[in-house]
């Protein structure tokens, strides 16, 4: 008998007992059952995840129209007035009325008597500097009302109505009879301030050169013009400043 055969014979005496084999098969069956249970749990979890995902997608789809129906900022209307409320909704980014910060030091108040003829050179220096383009003409006592002619204004507000100039050189007239306020060199009347309106109410006019600078004018019943030059001017601050000046 060769060593090889002897070694084989020796190994043949080493064998696994039937009890150990049975134990392995029992473990296999247990594992199989556990596997089935685990598989069921996995399937249930997958089903739950699918349902939740579907619910999430449905929720997003349901929310989408509501999101898209939210009011979007609209560009200011060219050569047409919108109410202050509309302006608040549509031009939030450029609404001086909503500026919470008000730098009191930048407010300058300048009063002009109703019957006084104003010249640009006679305006205070800070007002001259503020105006983007020096007023070409200021006519006092034209039809009994003041006319301010200037160019370069982008946006302005008259009595709570917001206006936006077209582009290029534009002008704003204040006063001047039936055509008190116009743009585009008067070719396209924007707003007519009737004498009775000016005579009976106080008219607030805000001129905005850009987002940071703002000039406010106010015509009083007596025809006085108040200039307030500064930034972040609110309606309340403006009125407060005028009231202070009239004391």
């Amino acid at each position: 008998m060769t060593n090889n055969e002897l070694y084989r014979m020796a190994n043949s005496e080493i064998s696994v007992s039937e009890a150990m084999k049975t134990e392995i098969l029992r473990a296999a069956n247990s594992q199989y059952r556990n596997g089935r249970i685990l598989l069921r749990k996995k399937r249930l979890a997958a089903l739950m995840a699918a349902v939740l995902s579907l619910a999430l997608v449905c929720g997003i789809i349901w929310m989408m129209p509501q999101v898209t129906q939210l009011p979007l900022p609209k560009p200011s209307e060219s050569l047409s007035g919108t109410t202050l409320n509309e302006q608040n909704e549509n031009k939030v980014y450029f609404n001086p009325m909503q500026r919470d910060v008000f730098d009191q030091d930048k407010i300058k108040l300048f009063e002009v008597a109703g019957n006084e003829t104003l010249k640009f050179d006679s305006l205070p220096k800070d007002i001259q500097d503020f105006l983007p383009v020096p007023p070409q003409e200021y006519i006092s006592e034209t039809d009994g009302y003041h006319v301010l002619y200037s160019t370069g204004w982008r946006e302005f507000m008259i009595d709570g109505k917001f206006y936006h100039q077209k582009s290029g050189e534009s002008s704003l007239y204040i006063g001047g009879g039936k055509r008190a306020a116009e743009v585009d060199d008067g070719k396209n009347p924007l707003l007519t301030l009737k004498p009775s309106v000016i005579g009976e109410t106080q008219t607030s006019i805000y001129l905005m050169k850009d987002e940071e600078e703002l000039s406010a004018y106010r015509m009083t019943e007596a025809g006085a013009v108040y200039f307030i030059v500064g930034s972040h001017i609110s309606e309340r601050d403006f009125l407060s400043a005028v009231e202070q000046s009239m004391k």
Binding site: V16, L25, Q31
Partner: peptide, 28 residues
Amino acid sequence: MFLVSSVSNQKPLLEEIVEKYSDMVLRL
């Protein structure tokens, strides 16, 4: 019992594997 044999790929049943290769594993 446990696991059905895949006849197509001729994989033996687990019981067959246990019966056939238990001694080989233990001896090694």
